[in-house]
Write a protein that binds this DNA or RNA. Structure first.
Lengths: 208, 208
DNA sequence: CCTACCGATCGGTAGG
DNA sequence: CCTACCGATCGGTAGG
């Protein structure tokens, strides 16, 4: 959802790339640079250099450095949430859904490793209000996992002594930690990681 | 393990605090500031202000900003590792040890939340060589968990289809994620979190 | 998008 | 620890 600063219209006649396309490039480069150097460690100069434009020219597309980070994180979060909500909406009992969400979320994270890292690492570089704006008041991400575990328990699929809140935080932790050690082309494929994790977790939850 | 810059000896006669004590204050303040603003977002000016000295004066105690971060992270890591190694050395079968390590590690992290956060968040602000120097070539932290799961499996305590490497990464993730949501005085006590997590994990691992 | 610029701040140092 | 300082870089802006 690009939202460039709506300053003035371009005047020159020789522009090669339309504004939207250039914004997409800026978005991608910013994601990479924030990933490489962290938000505070990255400078607009770094971003401009890689795009081949001058630093001041970035302000044709953005309002501020912080806004740029917000755009990146908001978009990454939106896509990730969309993914797990879709997975959780498919047919099946709560535990089957949980399995699909775990596997699908890990696959999604691994496919978008750079953006995911920026989201999970630079979120707190944003002021609290903007963090809340992205996460939603009740932490949409967590809610998906919490709802599934709660429903599974209500259906008698989960042991009595399991606290759905703590269990869902444990699950979220193991899953979200993956970006810290996963390397594309490494020892494990995302699907294999997801299935092993799901096995381990479901086995820990289920009633005998 | 304070390691102040060994510049010159103090000359003045009116100094109130010995060098070691002042270094400890610097260390504590730096940990707090790095926690509040992140390494890149924190300035030596911030640290000096809180200590009530001038920025340039910090260089009586440190060599560089990066060295200061290194000292903080290295010490936090050392203490954390010491804690879990001690727990893993106590008597019991591998699964009992794993339980103790999980609970004890969560308690330790929650008791040292600020330092833990700096360690887990700012590690990558250090150059790769210094990261390796802290973690050790084979990632001492991970090894403790991996060894326990591997031994438990060798003893036939763990299901055949569990991959110790993936299982230990899943465990480490759920445990290390705690600093992201734990709040002192909140709904759960560290011990309770640890025991619930251990229940969930061990139940996921054990052979029938 | 470029030109040309600003005030503020950064980590760090010489010398005492 | 302070005085006094440096070169470099920061995010951002006016005007076109």
């Amino acid at each position: 959802m690009p939202q460039p600063a709506g300053r003035a219209q371009r005047r020159g006649g020789g522009s090669r790339k339309p504004r939207e396309e250039r914004w997409a490039e800026l978005f991608a480069v910013a994601t990479d640079i924030f990933h490489e150097k962290g938000y505070e460690g990255a400078s607009l100069q770094d971003i401009a250099d890689r795009l081949g434009m001058l630093k001041g020219s970035l302000y044709y597309y953005i309002h501020s450095k912080e806004d740029l980070l917000f755009e990146v994180i908001n978009e990454v979060h939106r896509q990730g949430l969309e993914n797990i909500v879709a997975l959780a909406s498919q047919p099946g009992d709560p535990l089957q859904k949980l399995r699909n969400v775990i596997v699908g979320h890990i696959e999604h994270m691994c496919r978008h490793l750079t953006g995911t890292t920026v989201f999970l690492h630079e979120m707190e570089s944003l002021p609290p209000e903007r963090q809340a704006e992205i996460l939603g008041g009740e932490h949409a991400y967590r809610s998906v996992f919490l709802d599934l575990v709660s429903k599974a328990k209500a259906d008698g699929l989960v042991r009595d002594d399991i606290d759905p809140k703590l269990a869902s935080l444990a699950i979220l932790g193991s899953v979200n930690w993956v970006y810290r050690w996963f390397r594309p082309g490494g020892e494990f494929t995302p699907r294999h990681i997801g299935e092993q994790f799901a096995d381990l977790i479901l086995r820990g939850l289920v009633a005998d």
